[in-house]
């Protein structure tokens, strides 16, 4: 279940304002604790497949189907005026994993959303996700437990995941990534 504070009209308005002005927003304590724990358990039981292409990436991933959660998330995104996610994938990054900056372009005004499930993490482990806009300030997504981040992308956007070093030991960064297509009814976010 979503933290109900985020469904209040005033909060919805504030999130929309932040997305419009800053092009990204991070919502901490996004799920209630039981819902977060359930989703983390679900993710950890997925059949992860490791993918390694040395000049591009090293990580494990698995598609996730959590119907109850997805329904609730889609309803929340609808309150923001955003479409339901088209792709939902759970990622796990361990020692030696990374994604290099690639030339893959995003759609204009597409959104990427991340739900951080990592229980605990130190920034010194690495693994920070960076979104580089064509111009302007990069958006850094450090692993903060139970945080939902939304990033507005442009065709100029590039992203990478910092290499995870040996100090992480057995810790893994786990998050769900959602691709939210451009809302075709409305190109701007309005209440």
């Amino acid at each position: 279940m979503l933290n109900q504070i985020y469904t209040r009209p005033a909060m919805i308005h504030a999130i929309q304002q932040t997305l419009t002005t800053k092009k990204s927003v991070q919502l901490h304590h996004f799920l209630t604790l039981p819902a977060y724990q359930t989703l983390l358990r679900q993710c950890n039981s997925l059949p992860f497949k490791h993918s390694y292409d040395p000049t591009h990436h090293s990580y494990a991933s698995a598609p996730i189907t959590a119907p109850t959660f997805m329904q609730e998330l889609s309803a929340f995104l609808a309150l923001l005026g955003l479409s339901a996610p088209e792709i939902s994938q759970c990622y796990q990054f361990a020692h030696r994993d990374y994604i290099l900056r690639s030339d893959r372009t995003h759609e204009e005004n597409e959104y990427i959303a991340l739900l951080e499930l990592t229980p605990s993490w130190k920034l010194t482990y690495g693994g920070i996700i960076t979104y580089l806009p064509g111009r302007g300030t990069p958006t850094l997504i450090p692993p903060v437990t139970n945080t939902f981040s939304i990033i507005t992308t442009t065709t100029q956007h590039r992203s990478f995941v910092q290499y995870i070093n040996h100090t992480a030991k057995k810790n893994k960064r786990t998050y769900i990534q959602f691709i939210i297509p451009r809302n075709r009814q409305s190109k701007t976010i309005t209440l």
Partner: peptide, 10 residues
């Protein structure tokens, strides 16, 4: 030094 690296490239 500890944790430094250079990832694959040509």
């Amino acid at each position: 030094t500890s944790t430094d690296y250079l990832l694959p490239h040509d």
